[in-house]
């Protein structure tokens, strides 16, 4: 009798998971299942549906490799650039009067959609943008720079930084703020100078957040479609773009599905390797 009652209570809790988690899993499983099935030639809309490995064989072509390398390049550069600016900025802001005002201002780009961010920054860095005008007037450069759709992807990188630095700053600021005052006081009391407090207390306590925020920005940039599409190079572009073009322009759905699978695999293996390495790093500290 008693055990029966306990058991019923137990199941009731799991039942409550259904609306939220069940919804997510239903659609995710559907979408992923569709992706995997299509990559093997099933559910094909444009040709005969049958199981086949031919799409997987043809996938590792030059375009794919170029686009993959471009996506990884922008993602790595953007996340490193962001942390290099956001981490010190979070530490400085914490010390300043008026930190609330600064934080409110900083949050704004987080709520500006990627498309709009792209346009806002393009307006500044374009051929006739304010940046070029100032640089030419100051005689730093002779000819205005052509940054939009440049072949390296500087414009895309700048826009990613503009959008993601605030995001990272908020995470890092929470981490810096979470370092308890009495821990710092205790360290000072035990004879630690400003530098020692920084290296021995603040860095070890905020490093986990820094490592996490880097991988979050990496994933966001790696998965990006609109920013590189509007401001990035014409070739190569992101994997997301390649997938979209393959599916909608060339109507090659199975290959697009293969690209999607590879994209997920790349992202997952990068995140796993990174998580493993940062765990090792934290253990050694």
């Amino acid at each position: 009798m008693k055990t029966a009652r306990k058991k019923r209570k137990f199941e009731w809790g799991y039942l409550l998971l259904l609306p939220g988690l069940g919804y997510i899993l239903f659609f995710l499983a559907g979408a992923t299942g569709m992706m995997i099935a299509q990559s093997f030639g099933l559910f094909n809309y444009t040709a005969e549906s049958r199981f086949s490995l031919e799409y997987w064989r043809g996938i590792l072509n030059e375009t794919f490799v170029d686009d993959l390398l471009y996506s990884l390049k922008i993602a790595v550069c953007a996340s490193l650039l962001c942390i290099c600016i956001a981490y010190p900025l979070a530490l400085i802001i914490k010390k300043l009067p008026g930190e609330r005002t600064i934080l409110s201002l900083v949050k704004i780009p987080m709520f500006i959609p990627a498309l709009v961010a792209s346009l806002l920054i393009l307006n500044i860095i374009d051929y006739h943008g304010i940046l070029n005008i100032i640089l030419v007037r100051l005689q730093i450069i002779e000819e205005p720079l052509r940054l939009r759709n440049d072949s390296w992807g500087v414009a895309a990188l700048l826009i990613q930084a503009w959008k993601n630095i605030p995001f990272m700053l908020i995470i890092m600021y929470s981490a810096v703020e979470a370092v308890r005052r009495d821990v710092i006081d205790a360290a000072r009391n035990l004879g630690a100078g400003r530098l020692a407090v920084f290296t021995q207390i603040i860095v070890p306590l905020t490093l986990p957040s820094a490592l996490v925020s880097v991988i979050l920005v990496f994933i966001r940039v790696f998965n990006d479609y609109v920013i590189s599409k509007t401001a990035g190079p014409l070739y190569p572009n992101t994997i997301s773009n390649l997938m979209h073009v393959t599916a909608y322009l060339y109507n090659d759905w199975p290959s697009a599905a293969c690209i999607g699978c590879l994209m997920v695999i790349t992202a997952v293996s990068f995140v796993s390797a990174y998580t493993y390495l940062s765990k090792k790093l934290m253990q050694n500290l």
Partner: peptide, 27 residues
């Protein structure tokens, strides 16, 4: 585990999810 699971939609590639979720909704 469930808390990690619920974050999946935010981490998976948006365009890939959109395209194949689109296929599923089309079905």
């Amino acid at each position: 585990f469930f808390k990690t699971l619920m974050l999946l939609p935010l981490v998976l590639p948006g365009m890939a999810m959109a395209i194949f979720l689109g296929r599923m909704l089309m079905k």
